[in-house]
Design a protein around this nucleic acid. Structure first.
Lengths: 186, 186
DNA sequence: AGGATAAATGGACTATAGTCCGTTTGTGTG
DNA sequence: CACACAAACGGACTATAGTCCATTTATCCT
């Protein structure tokens, strides 16, 4: 019930500097070619500051993805059908998979960084919990009687960035998408 | 054409020492609580030797899993139906998933170590290629016209050790198995 | 046996994620 | 304005995976 204490001015300034530096370095050298030290140096900030603010590599990636991710979440919660409310559960499910694949393929490296920075990272991220809840609710509606919660995890497994990276590398985006779509809608 | 050059005696001795030491430490302290340094020290062997022989953490885990893994592979290639040849493709597929889940849940930590030591490790391991080829062949037979190769990857995605670890931790092995089975047979 | 050769060894070295804590700085208060 | 205090800072420190290469050693050939 206390008011949220305002973010200090230097903290805000540094957060901006770090995000800008990270975006720049990732663009120039690729996500996998940039160390946390390099991000801190480019931002003109100490290492401790970087980790205090973002927790770990995964947290930095999540912060960079935040805006895009929220767009998708809002489209699901309140956008037009079939992605948003209004369509039947089965249709919303396939619409979600398509939209998520758009998002994923557009930011594959960054999502992979957010999911693989530490073991089990994927399942701890706030965004994953959102996708999971969404899918679980739709599954419960589309297939009454199924054990929706674990099934939703299983359904999301082929959408893991690590998996899609391997699939895209071997078959290209088009076949990769089709395969995942085929499994999920079946 | 050339005969395979025999393994030198000291190399064989050290390989045995390392595998024994690793098995012992993993049993005592858990897979995640043992560093490569610790394995080398316990085996009375230099770090360079450890890495030269096994490549990386993933390789060490694979070596430890080797025997169990080969049993399953042989049962698939030449064992009794429905896991081995003789049953219809769809039945062999569900039999494979059951058998693989047995194997996976019995060695979850070690398989996870083998799959997550480095990014993309899972898809480079020889064993994974075997499971993938098996599943792809069965899929091509069970669902003619489907794009079996990428679809087989998608089908294997929920069987990733990382995913099953999260599922088992949250819902226990029974529900986890049922969920994966439901997705794969659907 | 003895020497040539290639394989194997081991530990110092590098790279990198993440922690810790003494110091600095912004902010709200008298 | 000055002061107190919590928040933020930054860089030294730790832990660990993986590399490198000068040295040692097994094996093969004569």
């Amino acid at each position: 019930m206390g008011e949220p204490p305002r973010e200090r001015a230097d903290a805000a300034r540094n957060r901006t500097k770090v995000l800008a530096a990270a975006a720049r370095l990732f663009r120039e050298r690729g996500v996998d070619g940039v160390s946390m030290d390099a991000v801190a140096a480019e931002a003109g900030v100490g290492k401790g500051t970087l980790f205090r603010r973002f927790g770990d590599r995964s947290g930095l990636a999540v912060a960079l993805l935040d805006e895009r991710e929220r767009e998708l979440q809002e489209a699901i919660l309140a956008g037009p059908a079939p992605l948003g409310p209004g369509a039947r559960a089965a249709e919303r499910l396939t619409a979600f998979v398509e939209a998520y694949l758009d998002y994923l393929l557009a930011h594959l490296d960054l999502v992979r960084m957010s999911e693989t920075a530490s073991p089990g990272a994927r399942y701890r991220i706030g965004a994953y919990r959102f996708w999971h809840r969404h899918v679980a609710i739709l599954l419960a509606e589309a297939r009454p009687g199924c054990d929706a919660d674990p099934l939703a995890h299983a359904l999301l497994a082929p959408l893991a960035a690590e998996h899609m990276t391997a699939l895209v590398a071997e078959y290209g985006p088009a076949r990769a998408r089709k395969a995942v779509r085929a499994l999920v809608t079946g």
